[in-house]
Design a protein around this nucleic acid. Sequence first.
DNA 1: TTGTACGCGTTATCAT
DNA 2: ATGATAACGCGTACAA
Lengths: 343, 343
Amino acid sequence: MRRKRFGNTPAGTGVVTMADVAARAGVSAQTVSRVIGRPEMVTEETRKRVQDAIRALNYIPNEAARNLASNNSRVVAVVIPTLSSSAFAAQVKATIDMLEMRGISVIIGNSEYSVLREEQIIQTFLERRPMGFILTGLHHTPRAMDLLRQSGVPVVETWDTDAPPIDCAAGFSNIAAGRDVGALLLKRGAQRIAFVGGAAKQDSRANGRFVGLAQAVQEAGLPPPERIELVLPMSTQDGIRGLDAVLAQAPLTDAIFFSADSLALAALLECNRRGLRVPEQLAICGFGDFDLAGLVTPALTTVRIQPDLMGRTSAELLLARVDGDEAPRTVALQHQLIRRGSA
Amino acid sequence: MRRKRFGNTPAGTGVVTMADVAARAGVSAQTVSRVIGRPEMVTEETRKRVQDAIRALNYIPNEAARNLASNNSRVVAVVIPTLSSSAFAAQVKATIDMLEMRGISVIIGNSEYSVLREEQIIQTFLERRPMGFILTGLHHTPRAMDLLRQSGVPVVETWDTDAPPIDCAAGFSNIAAGRDVGALLLKRGAQRIAFVGGAAKQDSRANGRFVGLAQAVQEAGLPPPERIELVLPMSTQDGIRGLDAVLAQAPLTDAIFFSADSLALAALLECNRRGLRVPEQLAICGFGDFDLAGLVTPALTTVRIQPDLMGRTSAELLLARVDGDEAPRTVALQHQLIRRGSA
DNA sequence: TTGTACGCGTTATCAT
DNA sequence: ATGATAACGCGTACAA
């Protein structure tokens, strides 16, 4: 049993290792490993001795070594368009909380609504050999899909179930949500509906909502909805710009569907300020059911989508796949139209 | 040169390794390593051969092995109270974006406003040997501080500069912010000021704001402010509960300082609904300058704090420490009183 | 129940 | 500029 330490190795951390614990407890390193990983496989007594040694030495296992030896990183990679959106933040939070219980860490990448950035992030993250990826949406670059396929990591896609997933998905139908909104606005008597949302090229989920809305409008025999595409990332203020653009390009508009509550709220408050009566003169519907949606006057009609459930479900789906359990290919979460005063 | 692969080792990944690349390029593994890490140390020609081999084999370096050999994890750990707050989310986003450029991944822990949970998270994260920690606030459990000190990792504390940091800090003075708010409310003619915010035990930053407010009030010779402590985590709706609690416990209150804009906005909108005139009957001041703060009517008077700058600065501070560069011990970010209509 | 031998994929060191 | 060799700290497999 050779002993080493201190300058023996240049790369050495000078930090206590499993061998040190083993020496102090008078057992082999393997036993220490067992006490940590499968305590039930060790005698009550030795276990205690080892645990004492661990405490005495302030031993902290080295994940990198563990990863290398066990070929399991205990890391899950999450890529979202941005954290500056309460919905994505809520989703990520739920995912973290869920995985933390299993000792899994989450690394997060912000794609800034660019599939190219997403591809880069995926490539970088792959170096950490994550247990799986949780991505946003179903649209990615061909190379990104190749990378994922070749690496063989499980992939869960979120926020969209309107196309087949790479591997599996936990999301909702943006098209169905858009249709529901369209139906509601039409029922309210709207004749000229407009849509304000992120550019289709950047945000295929928002595009899905528009598609659903357009379907509903077309089926009602009305002219297709006016569409204002905002460049992402967008600010809350863009809601007002969207409103202005609609009023300029389609002055007869009597209802607007915003692809996010932040935009809708900004527009609604601006209408109040301008004396434009909502919903009488202009009906407004948002998306996301943000905290303040129910508190403004008139209260904002919107679509609720449970980002936290999505975060939890996507994590569960990933874990099931990793554990080799049976797992559904697509989990369709329900959206819910929240009808309030603004539409 | 022994060759191995396929079932030779049970733990084997069956995935292409550096040795494979080396073999294909007709060089040693070390050279491949150099091409990846210090390309300038390799001849133009061999570099090209190696890079071709990398592409041809779809080689992806293994971070775990890299970590173990180089004793550098390329991971930074961030612990915040919650991601469900736009300010923390913005901060984390900025940190991620900043570190991503250096190939560093960020792992995030949600302490749920509990120093005990924070301690657990720190202990777990320590297993990944992060390059450093970015924590929230200056208050932690003794054991957490011990763990950090013993491990020797750099620590940057954020959101507070009102006490000495463990290592270094990038934040602002909550006390000064509270004083400024107090001064403003007093100047506006408020006589009975109330404070609504997270429980002091849970949120020492909010407590700092209260302390500053109380100082200003006391110096003006007025009775100490009424204080409503909300249990964390809190929802936007709690703003209304806080408002009600204030009105019940101190009916003569003419100004309320909320420790977060979400609360203030909820209360302000509720006042509008109830016909309670703001600021004439009740002045309201928030904290954080959320997106919608300037859009409600009356617009919300609040304190702006630049969470994104804090996220970036804390990351820079950490990097400087890691690189051994000169770095200030405390970076004091400026807060800014944004006077609008509500106070 | 516990110990021994070895490999995980990479970087650091020291030669050449 | 490139290569050989030895860690890095742990888990797996199998023996005892």
